[in-house]
Nucleic acid binder design. Structure first.
Lengths: 152, 152
DNA sequence: CGATATAGTGGGGATAAATCAACCATCCTC
DNA sequence: GAGGATGGTTGATTTATCCCCACTATATCG
C-alpha cells in the first residue's frame, strides 16, 4: 500500500531538508535584531541599509554595483545612492572594470573593512559566549558545513 | 619586532571563532535578498517588516509583544502596529497571559503559519538545489550544529 | 492602601528607504 | 556605424519605519 503515494515522503531526505530549513529560519529570525544594532554601530551618520552593502562587500569581495544590488535585494537606484554615500565617507572605493568600461568594481577601503569588523564584533563577548562549550572540532565542522552551504 | 603584538592570537580557538563568524556573516549577507522577497510573498497588502515578526513567531512560538519587539529589533510601537495589522488579517492570534493580566500571548494562526511556510518555501527548488550532493549524514550534522548554535 | 513601575496601545512628526523615471556612456549585434 | 541593450548615476515622489510622547490597565513595592 505504500508503493505509489504521490507525496508520502518515504525518504527521510525531505524531512531532513525541512528540519534544516526550520533551523536556518530560526537563525535568520534571531539575527535581525543583531544586524540592525550592528548597522547602527557601523557608522554614526550613515543609513542603516548601507551596512548591508558593506557587510556583503566584506563577505564576497569586489563586485559591480548591479551584482551587489541583486545580492542584497535592493534595486540599483538605492544601491547606487548608498554606495555614493559610503564613497564620500571613504568607506568604499571604486575602480573601473578593466573588462567593461561602463562598469566599476566596488570594494571596501581599509577603513571600511575595519568598520565592518568593528560593527560585526566577531570577537565580541556575545558571539563567543554562544560558542562556549564547543569543541574545536565542532567549530571546524560547523564552519566547513556553513561554507559549503554558502558556496552552494 | 613581532614580540609584543597586542593581538597575537596564539590560540587557534580565536581563529576558529573568527572564521565561523566570517561564514555566518556571509550567510546573513546573502540571505537578506531572499528574506525581502519572501516578505513580499508573505502577504500582498502587508508591510515588509510584518514578515519578520511572523517568521520569528513561527520559529520561536508564542510570546509577548515586548519579547517579540526585543527579539526582532523593533520598538514596541512598530511591533504593536504590525501585530494589530496581522490580527486584523487573521494571521496572528492573541490570548491573555494567564500569569499576567496586562500581558498577552501572541501566536500564529493556522492561516498565518501556512502563509509563513509558503513564503519561506522551505521545500522550494532554490533551497533544495543548495543541498544537492549533501549526504544525509551531513544534513543531520549541519542541522544539529545549527540547532545548538541557535539555542546558545 | 497609595505610589511607582511595567505591559500594551495608539498618535504625530521626522527620517530613511523603495519606487519610478529620465539620463549618459559603453557595449554588442547586424 | 546605427540601433538597441546594458551598467550606472541621479532626482522626485511615495511609502514605510523609527522615535518620542501620552494614555489605560495591571502589577509590585512600601
Amino acid at each position: 500500500m505504500s508503493t505509489k503515494l504521490p507525496d508520502p515522503d518515504p525518504s527521510p531526505r525531505s524531512a531532513l531538508e525541512l528540519e534544516l530549513g526550520v533551523e536556518l529560519n530560526a537563525l535568520l529570525s534571531a539575527s535581525r535584531a543583531l544586524t540592525e544594532r550592528s548597522a547602527a554601530a557601523f557608522h554614526p551618520e550613515l543609513q542603516p541599509a548601507a551596512f548591508h552593502i558593506a557587510r556583503w562587500l566584506y563577505a564576497y569581495g569586489p563586485a559591480k554595483p548591479s551584482a551587489v544590488a541583486e545580492a542584497v535585494g535592493m534595486d540599483r537606484s538605492s544601491t547606487s545612492h548608498l554606495i555614493g554615500w559610503m564613497k564620500r565617507l571613504g568607506l568604499v572605493e571604486s575602480r573601473p572594470d578593466p573588462s567593461d568600461r561602463r562598469a566599476v568594481l566596488l570594494s571596501l577601503s581599509p577603513t571600511g573593512e575595519a568598520q565592518v569588523l568593528a560593527a560585526l564584533d566577531l570577537r565580541g563577548a556575545a558571539f563567543s559566549a554562544r560558542l562556549r562549550g564547543w569543541s574545536e572540532e565542532d567549530l571546524q565542522t560547523f564552519t566547513a558545513l556553513l561554507h559549503r552551504f554558502n558556496a552552494g
